[in-house]
Each structure stands twice: as C-alpha cells, then as structure tokens.
C-alpha cells in the first residue's frame, strides 16, 4: 500500500473536517476521493501533501512515516484546482521549477561542465514532459496566454517533473467547462496508463470518479462511507448515502433502487410486482423517464428505453406493474443511519 492513513482527525475551530479516518490507498493506481463539497475530501488530500497537518493520527507514504514531514520532503506532486501557475515564468520555466530547486550547482560557476550537463538534463526532461502534456509549442509562452485546460496540463507536467512518488490532484478539472473537463478526464486516464504513478484526485462529480478511477473512496461529513472499485460501489453500495451519491435512486415499496433497475410489465405476471399508475412520461434522448404512483400514493421513478416504452405503449394514466430487476443493487429503506 502506498499511502496509509491511520486514525486521522482534523478540526477547523468547531468544524470537524475529518473524524477518525483510516484508509489505505494502493500503489500505482488512480484513486478518487469522492464526496459532496465540505465533506473533508480536500482536507484529507492536503494532509497527505503536508499542506495541512492532522490534529491526531498518522500518514505514511511508501512505508515512510510522513506525519510531521514538511511538504517539500514528502516527494508528492500537487495539482491545485485553480492551477496555481507561477505567473511570471514561462511554461517551460514553470515545469522546470522543481528540477531547478533540486539541482544543486553549489558554488560552481554556470559555465562549468557539471552545470552545463545539469542544464541539458533539465532541458531534456522539460521537453519530454511538455510533449507528454501536448504543450511543446507553448514552451516560451506565459501562463496568461494559455487556456484553462492548457494551464492545468502545465500544472500537471510541473508536478510530474520531480518524479513524485504520489501525485495528488485537488478538484483538478473543477474550474473548467464541461467539454474541456470531459476531454481532460479521458486524457488523465490515458496519461496514468502511460505514467503509472500513484495518483489520488478529489472530485465531487460521481461520473468523473466512475469514469477515471480504479478505486473510489466515498467521503461524507468527515467520515469514509465506503471504499471500492467503481463497479462494486455502484452495484453494492454500503448504505443509502453511497447509493444516492453514485446515481439516481428511487423507492419501490420498502426498497431503494436505481430507476433503470425496475422492470415494467403490463400485467402482474412476475412475483412481487407492484401495480402503479403512470403519472408522467418524459423522453430524454434515447431513454424514457416515467413517474408512477402506487396505490399507497408513493411516487416511483423508472427509466426505460425508448423501444421498450413504445412496445408497452406507455402513456399517462396507464396501469403497469413494476418489479425490481434480478441482481440489482438495492438498499432496504430506513436501514442506513444517515440519509443522503
């Protein structure tokens, strides 16, 4: 395990940001810290980076206790939501920053062969990184001349330059518009496959987490709700909060389940089916959303395909029978402690 977090607590005044957090993040994987805003996920990331200090508990990175280590000694790369570019430096200089800091020329004058070699090596590494993030042609520009997505890629290259053991990204695409966000998301996934450094990123967007991450840690109100692969979280949510946060949820009788996991039939053929009246029908692209009312007055949302809806001739006022599909993720209502 690459990052071990053990019994971490953090308060800001009266506000409890993290409460007894224990989690291990695997080496070489892309992990998402997912949760609503203010849930403590950014605080956890900043504690891993050393930008914030835990009140109690320990953090170890690659087997080294880093709890009291300063951020500059942890060898982690950090990418900020608002890029934190060095405005007065060119793109190449930004990327080279960490390398220049680490290269000790000592008292040797800049024309000695050792210094020249250092500079060549740095130059080569910067070129390589700029190529990796597709910014080679922008090397001599200032960050103010780049778009948001380009700035964030530059920030990523800058963090990768020092070959960190861990790469931490704090809502990396949060400040970008939807289209660029989607592009960068795919690009980050490909980048991680090329450069498999242990990566942890914070997001409040469940779609982003499911699409990019190998593993998701769901954090809410300073506590970890569940840890698992995107599939296992989606299919076997530990509680109502996780289920609700990862996708749409509706109630059918005493069950909570996803609207597309409900089968619609024209008669009570299946065991356990519930008779309902269709109240509203909305077509959204290829899918059809129904709102149906049970005899007890409960409203159930159902998502089905367009073809299926046409075959059943679904329209408002029609009586249908609903059954949970086989093997669907369900959580008995009222069982969980907290409601999302």
């Amino acid at each position: 395990m690459s990052i071990e977090i053990d019994g971490v607590n953090k308060r800001f005044g009266d506000f409890v940001a993290l409460e007894n957090v224990n989690v291990s993040l695997p080496t070489g994987q892309l992990t998402a810290l997912l949760g609503p805003s203010g849930g403590g996920k950014s605080t956890l990331l900043r504690i891993i980076a050393g930008l914030e200090r835990a009140d109690t508990g320990t953090v170890s990175i690659e087997g080294v206790d880093a709890t009291r280590m300063s951020p500059r000694k942890r060898n982690v790369g950090f990418v900020f939501q608002h890029y934190a570019v060095f405005k007065h430096m060119t793109v190449a200089k930004n990327v080279a920053f960490g390398l220049e800091i680490r290269t000790h020329g000592g008292l040797r004058p800049p024309w000695t062969s050792r210094r020249l070699r250092d500079r060549e090596r740095m130059q080569a590494r910067v070129d390589e990184l700029l190529k990796l993030v597709h910014l080679s042609q922008f090397a001599d520009r200032l960050p103010s001349q780049l778009s948001g997505g380009q700035r964030q890629r530059m920030a990523l290259a800058r963090a990768l330059a020092v070959q960190p053991k861990v790469l931490l990204l704090d809502e990396p695409f949060g400040a970008l518009d939807a289209k660029v966000r989607k592009e960068l998301r795919e690009w980050l996934r490909r980048l991680h496959d090329e450069v498999p450094v242990t990566t942890v990123f914070v997001t409040h967007d469940q779609e982003e987490a499911m699409e990019v991450a190998d593993e998701i840690v769901v954090i809410n109100e300073g506590r970890i709700e569940q840890v698992g692969t995107p599939d296992s979280l989606y299919d076997e949510p530990a509680n109502e909060f996780v289920m609700g946060f990862l996708g749409e949820v509706t109630r059918l009788g005493e069950l909570r389940l996803r609207p597309h996991d409900i089968e619609v039939g024209l008669g009570p053929d299946l065991a356990g089916s519930t008779p309902v009246d269709v109240l509203r029908v909305t077509r959204v692209g290829f899918e059809v959303r129904l709102v149906a009312g049970t005899e007890e007055g409960q409203e159930v949302s159902v998502v089905t395909t367009r073809a299926h809806a046409r075959a059943l001739d679904l329209e408002e006022g029609r009586r249908v029978w609903l059954t949970p599909s086989n093997g669907t993720a369900t959580v008995p209502a009222m069982k969980s402690l907290r409601v999302g």
Partner: peptide, 11 residues
C-alpha cells in the same frame, strides 16, 4: 496558492 505549489515542489 503559488507559494504552496512551490513548497510542494520542494522549495
């Protein structure tokens, strides 16, 4: 932000 970034890069 910039100062934190620099620190995380080892400055």
């Amino acid at each position: 932000d910039q100062e934190q970034a620099a620190r995380s890069l080892g400055a």
